[in-house]
């Protein structure tokens, strides 16, 4: 057998160092809809951030925003937001912007 694969893990076991390298699950690619924030309703309480399963909410200082590279569009943040500041909008409405 001729091995052409270049090793991903430096170690014999499958250890990875997050500072150097991570093999990330492309959960963003699973998304069919994304959370869109109405900033006038948001009071920066952080509940969306606490409930987010892949913990992809980014702290923007006065509000939170989903990191779309990881947000899988589950809608839990919108469901939990007590002020209804987050709305799930179908991906189709955003064209190919990502």
């Amino acid at each position: 057998m001729v091995i052409k694969h270049k090793n991903i893990f430096e170690t014999e076991s499958c250890w990875s160092n997050a500072d150097k390298q991570m093999l990330c699950l492309d959960t963003g690619g699973w998304r069919t809809e994304r959370p869109v924030l109405d900033q006038t309703k948001c009071n920066y309480c952080g509940l969306c951030c606490l409930y987010c399963p892949p913990q992809c909410m980014l702290d923007k200082g006065d509000h939170y925003e989903a990191n779309l590279a990881f947000c899988k569009g589950c809608g839990i943040c919108a469901h939990e937001c007590p002020r209804g500041a987050l709305t799930m909008v179908p991906e189709g409405e955003f064209g190919n912007e990502g």
Partner: peptide
Amino acid sequence: RGCGTHGMEMG
């Protein structure tokens, strides 16, 4: 660092 958490595809 962690073990076993990043076993995607070729990993």
